[in-house]
Nucleic acid binder design. Structure first.
Lengths: 121, 121
DNA sequence: ACGGGTACTTACCAAAAGGTGCATACTTGA
DNA sequence: TCAAGTATGCACCTTTTGGTAAGTACCCGT
């Protein structure tokens, strides 16, 4: 078990801790869309364009395990399952909001940066 | 070149755009430490515990290419190079601050979540 | 009996990301 | 001549992440 002391702390800083929860190609986007309210699996998949079933389910399971997201199974057929944010998750998404704003504001710059990276490969 | 229209937009949302800039295991931490002011390469490496030279240099190059970070070579021997945030970078790090706060507040929960993930593998 | 729907599983594979180990350049001091 | 310092390069390798394709469970309607 990892020792938690000042000599070898688990996390370098608060940001480091947060990154462990939100790392994964799709997690930030999943959380972003769940911020709109409880969402069915299929609807979430349509919102998070490009994600595969395998990854969506895997990352939802991890978010559930971490206490960020909760899963509601209505026990119907066809299956109807909702995913929603816990209070813990709502606070996390709130902390992510400035990143949304920054990205909105700088989409042009970011697209240009991506093009530069592509060219220099 | 990717078409930017409402039918097939480059980014799903602002957050998606931001993620393209900060994705990479070490980038958020690099930015976090550079927020303290211009930093020498060696000092930055010591701060970002665990990073290899290869990755630190690679991710610094990408951040520089994206206009987030600037590199100052003093032309001395031994080499002395400083890395610092551009204004663009300072604004990005400001947007990341709530994530630092969230992580600070929830380090215990996050550590517990990580332990649960480890057990269920 | 079969196909539809939704949500999810799994084996195998590919791609991406990250790391190791050794190397380089250059001036200075021993 | 060699070692020291700092910053960086590169070939090869390992690990992690993500994707594909085919499959599953279950009830209902045709």
């Amino acid at each position: 078990m990892a020792k938690e002391n000042s000599e070898n702390p688990r996390f370098i800083c608060g940001l480091h801790a947060t990154l462990h929860v939100i790392s994964g190609k799709w997690k930030p986007l999943i959380l972003f869309f769940l911020n709109k309210g409880p969402t069915r699996y299929g609807e979430l998949k349509r919102s998070v364009r490009g994600v595969s079933d395998k990854m969506l389910i895997q990352q939802l399971k991890e978010l559930e395990s971490d206490g960020i997201v909760e899963r509601t199974d209505y026990g119907e057929i066809p299956l109807r399952v909702d995913y929603s944010l816990t209070l813990f998750g709502v606070n996390l998404v709130r902390a992510m909001e400035p990143l949304c704003g920054w990205g909105e504001t700088h989409q042009g710059d970011i697209a240009a940066a991506m093009d530069r990276r592509k060219v220099s490969r």
